[in-house]
């Protein structure tokens, strides 16, 4: 049984602001971490691998520094991992990102289940997993809240579909995106970290891919374009309630009364 987990390196904080005068992005520090939602999908894969004597590989796309998240996955129990990195991948939207990862996976091997996290904390779109499954031609299920068992080439699982929980079986190979809090992710082992060698992390770039049309990657391969970015609008009509706590609570009480809430 072979499992692959897609992970992403995200900024340590989302504390980005736009200077309203110059329109310049103000970013405080560029510390990075593994997307927290990926910890759950990695844990799901690792525990299945333990149960069914399988192996776990991981894959990411990003700048060369993204190697750090692959190393982290190895410290948690993955066997090896791949970093997809090339300047040609820069500026990719969901479509181009999913396509690039699909090309990378095809060069990485064949897997029974590909795991994705629910979403990332920087993009927050929760779309890459489903688009990736389309490019790989695999069935996909999102919001998986439990994985019961693997039997006869099928994985039995439960997915949250808004107000319903749906139990289903999915023929492998398949792609699943797991919800947060499906499990309690294990901690990385620092003992393992000492033993991580360079050959455990593989780098693939544009030149390694089958599809060598640069128009399918990065900004060129993106269907969406960001026309502009701007700071969120502020509320124009606002009122400040001043005074002592007693005065403020009285004003608030009057407001609530006036609004006919009580």
């Amino acid at each position: 049984m072979k499992f692959l987990v897609c992970v992403k390196q995200v900024p340590g904080s989302n504390n980005v602001q736009v200077d309203p005068v110059t329109g310049v992005l103000k970013r405080s520090g560029i510390q990075s971490k593994m997307n927290p939602y990926d910890l759950y999908s990695l844990e799901a894969a690792l525990s299945l691998a333990e149960r069914y004597e399988g192996s776990v590989q991981t894959i990411t796309m990003g700048p060369p520094q993204a190697k750090a998240v692959i190393v982290e996955t190895i410290c948690m129990g993955a066997e090896s991992g791949t970093v997809l990195s090339d300047r040609k991948f820069a500026g990719a939207d969901v479509l181009a990102t999913a396509y690039t990862i699909s090309q990378g996976i095809e060069k990485t091997g064949e897997f029974d289940i590909i795991f994705c996290g629910k979403q990332t904390t920087d993009g927050d779109t929760a779309q890459v997993g489903a688009e990736l499954s389309e490019y790989l031609g695999l069935p996909n299920v999102s919001n998986v809240i439990s994985i019961e068992e693997i039997k006869d080439g099928k994985v039995y699982l439960t997915a949250a579909l808004d107000d319903k929980n749906v139990k289903m079986s999915v023929k492998m190979p398949c792609l699943i995106s797991v919800d947060g809090d499906i499990n309690s992710p294990r901690l990385p082992s620092y003992k393992v970290k000492q033993t991580v060698t360079d050959d455990m992390v593989r780098f693939l770039s544009f030149d390694d891919f089958d599809d060598k049309n640069p128009n399918n990657y990065g900004l060129n391969g993106s269907a969406t374009q960001v026309e502009r970015i701007f700071p969120p609008e502020k509320n124009a009509e606002k009122q400040e309630i001043k005074g002592t706590s007693a005065e403020q609570s009285q004003a608030l009480f009057e407001l609530i009364s006036a609004k006919k809430i009580i």
């Binding site: 969901v94 927050d124 929760a126 779309q127 490019y135 808004d162 993106s222 969406t224």
Partner: peptide, 23 residues
């Protein structure tokens, strides 16, 4: 942007090779 829509929209958009903006 329900759980259902969030799965269906990207899958269809990828097949159409077109742009999708979430939320």
């Amino acid at each position: 942007a329900t759980n259902l829509g969030r799965q269906l929209a990207p899958r269809v958009a990828a097949r159409m090779k077109s742009g999708l903006t979430a939320d």
